[in-house]
Simulated scan of single mutants.
Amino acid sequence: MSFVRAPRRTLLAAGAGALVAALTLSACSGDSNGKSGGGGDTNFVTNTGGISTAAKGERPDAPELTGKDLTGSPLDLADYKGKVVVLNVWGSWCAPCRSEARYLEKAAQQTKDKGVQFLGINTRDTQTGPALAFEKEFGVSYPSFHDPIGKLMLKFPKGSLNPQSIPTTIVVDREGKIAASAPRALDDKALRSMIDPIVAEK
C-alpha cells in the first residue's frame, strides 16, 4: 500500500481550520466556576473570585505580541513596556464580553494617568466590521489586536491563558511579566482589584 503525502499548504490549512473549530466549539464563558488558567507551568494562585495572581519574582514572561489593530495599523505590546498593561480577550459575538465592555472602559479611564494601558485581543471575528461596531457601541477607546483564529492567544505560556475562556483579562507588570489573570467577565471593582496592586509595586 502506498501513501501520498498531502501538500504542505493543505496541511497548514487543515491545522488552521482545526484551531478555528476548537475555538468555535468552546463556549463563550462568562463564569468559570472559580477555575482559571492558573496552574500548569506557572506560579499562579487562584482566589475565590477566580482571579489568579503570581508573586513578583515568580511571574512568567508575557509573550511577544505583534500584529495589526482593527483599523489595520501596526500594534506591538513591546511599545508599552514600562507600563502596566491590561490585556482583554474578547469577541463581538460574546455576550459576557458585551456585559463587561463598559467596565473595562471605565477602568481604563480611571487608571490611564497611573501608567496603565489597556489593549484588547479581538478573536473569532473573521471580519473587523462587527468588532469596530462593538467598540463604537460601548465607547471603547483603547486599541485591540485583530486575532481572528487565536494565533496570539496560543503564544501565552501554558497555564496563563486558556484559549477557550472568552472573555479573559490578563495584567502584565512594568517588567513585561504576567502578574494576574481572570478567565471570566469582570466588573470595574474586580478589574481594579487586579490592577491596583500591580500599579502600587515599586
Score class of each variant (00 low, 15 high):
180 A>K: 05
26 S>H: 07
105 E>H: 07
69 D>A: 06
74 P>K: 08
135 E>N: 14
67 G>W: 03
13 A>K: 11
144 S>D: 04
73 S>Y: 09
27 A>V: 12
201 E>R: 12
161 L>E: 03
81 K>R: 13
99 S>T: 15
78 A>I: 06
158 K>E: 14
77 L>D: 01
201 E>D: 12
179 A>H: 01
186 L>C: 04
62 A>Q: 03
98 R>H: 09
118 F>W: 03
37 G>E: 03
185 A>L: 01
113 D>V: 05
122 N>W: 02
114 K>G: 06
70 L>P: 04
124 R>M: 11
159 G>A: 10
115 G>Q: 08
187 D>W: 07
127 Q>L: 13
134 F>I: 05
141 S>F: 04
98 R>L: 02
144 S>V: 06
61 D>R: 13
26 S>V: 05
6 A>V: 07
2 S>P: 15
148 P>L: 00
117 Q>L: 04
62 A>R: 02
3 F>G: 13
111 T>N: 11
72 G>R: 06
104 L>N: 04
133 A>L: 10
50 G>H: 00
143 P>L: 00
92 S>M: 08
158 K>M: 13
131 A>F: 09
90 W>L: 05
41 D>E: 14
190 A>W: 02
156 F>P: 00
113 D>P: 10
125 D>Q: 09
102 R>Q: 14
69 D>N: 12
19 L>N: 06
150 G>V: 01
174 R>M: 06
40 G>I: 07
22 A>L: 15
1 M>N: 13
188 D>V: 14
190 A>C: 06
201 E>C: 14
22 A>K: 13
122 N>F: 02
104 L>I: 04
105 E>Y: 11
15 G>L: 15
66 T>V: 07
94 C>I: 09
121 I>M: 09
